Amino acid sequence: MSAEAMQILKQEVENNPVVLYMKGTPDFPQCGFSARSAEALKAVGAPFKAVNVFDDEEVYRQGVKTFSNWPTIPQLFINGELVGGSDIIVDLFQSGELKTMVESATAQ
């Protein structure tokens, strides 16, 4: 992964309280895991930045996996920290923790 790709990812997760790297977009997800993750964030009313990993193969599709040391997409970052993938996001949503985490991260 290039230094430029690393810098792009670092800036995105540091400058946005909630970032979801996903396949597709929240309105047009391109895999079920990404769809479930985006729906969970929408359901808790989370303002979030969604990044379509298909937009840039080097930076997003492969780079985010190296950046986070997490092998799968989607990936959720809150306050610059990796939260996890689809299963973790759905579990946090079902327990109510996702709403708390997002509200805390996005409070002005």
Score class of each variant (00 low, 15 high):
Met1Phe: 00
Met1Cys: 07
Met1Glu: 08
Ser2His: 05
Glu4Ile: 15
Glu4Met: 08
Ala5Leu: 04
Ala5Arg: 00
Met6Cys: 00
Gln7Met: 13
Gln7Leu: 13
Ile8Trp: 00
Ile8Asp: 01
Ile8Leu: 05
Ile8Cys: 02
Ile8Tyr: 00
Leu9Val: 03
Leu9Ala: 11
Leu9Ser: 09
Gln11Ile: 09
Glu12Gln: 09
Glu12Lys: 08
Val13His: 06
Glu14Thr: 05
Glu14Ala: 12
Asn15Arg: 05
Asn15Tyr: 08
Asn15Val: 03
Val18Ser: 01
Val18Gln: 00
Leu20Cys: 07
Leu20Met: 08
Leu20Trp: 14
Met22Arg: 11
Lys23Ile: 15
Lys23Thr: 15
Gly24Phe: 05
Pro26Asp: 12
Asp27Lys: 06
Asp27Gln: 11
Phe28Tyr: 13
Phe28Ile: 15
Phe28Asp: 08
Pro29Trp: 06
Cys31Pro: 06
Gly32Thr: 14
Phe33Pro: 01
Phe33Lys: 04
Phe33Val: 06
Ser34Pro: 01
Ser34Glu: 04
Arg36Lys: 12
Arg36Val: 13
Arg36Gln: 14
Ala38Lys: 13
Ala40Gln: 09
Ala40Val: 15
Ala40Lys: 04
Lys42Ser: 09
Lys42Phe: 11
Lys42Tyr: 09
Lys42Gln: 12
Ala43Val: 15
Ala43Leu: 11
Val44Gln: 09
Gly45Ser: 03
Gly45Lys: 05
Gly45Glu: 08
Pro47Ser: 11
Pro47Lys: 14
Pro47Arg: 12
Pro47Leu: 01
Lys49Ser: 02
Lys49His: 02
Ala50Cys: 06
Ala50Glu: 08
Asn52Gly: 11
Asn52Arg: 10
Asn52His: 12
Val53Ile: 14
Val53Ala: 04
Glu57Gly: 10
Glu58Ser: 13
Val59Leu: 00
Tyr60Val: 15
Gln62Leu: 09
Gly63Glu: 03
Gly63Met: 04
Val64His: 07
Lys65Asp: 09
Thr66Phe: 05
Ser68Glu: 11
Ser68Thr: 15
Asn69Lys: 12
Asn69Met: 09
Asn69Gly: 14
Trp70Gln: 12
Trp70Asn: 03
Trp70Tyr: 13
Trp70Ser: 11
Ile73Lys: 01
Pro74Gly: 07
Pro74Met: 10
Leu76Met: 07
Leu76Pro: 02
Leu76Asp: 02
Leu76Arg: 07
Leu76Glu: 05
Ile78Met: 02
Ile78Leu: 01
Ile78Asn: 02
Gly80Ala: 10
Gly80His: 07
Gly80Tyr: 06
Gly80Val: 11
Gly80Phe: 07
Glu81Lys: 11
Gly84Lys: 07
Gly84Phe: 04
Gly84Glu: 09
Gly85Asn: 08
Ser86Val: 14
Ile89Asp: 03
Val90Lys: 15
Asp91Ser: 09
Asp91Glu: 12
Leu92His: 08
Phe93Met: 01
Phe93Trp: 05
Phe93Cys: 00
Gln94Ser: 14
Ser95Ile: 13
Ser95Ala: 05
Gly96Ser: 09
Gly96Met: 00
Glu97Ala: 13
Leu98Cys: 11
Leu98Gly: 12
Lys99Gln: 08
Thr100Gln: 14
Met101Arg: 14
Val102Ala: 07
Val102His: 05
Val102Gly: 04
Glu103Asp: 14
Ser104Lys: 15
Ala105Leu: 12
Thr106Asp: 04
Ala107Ile: 00
Ala107Met: 02
Gln108Asp: 07
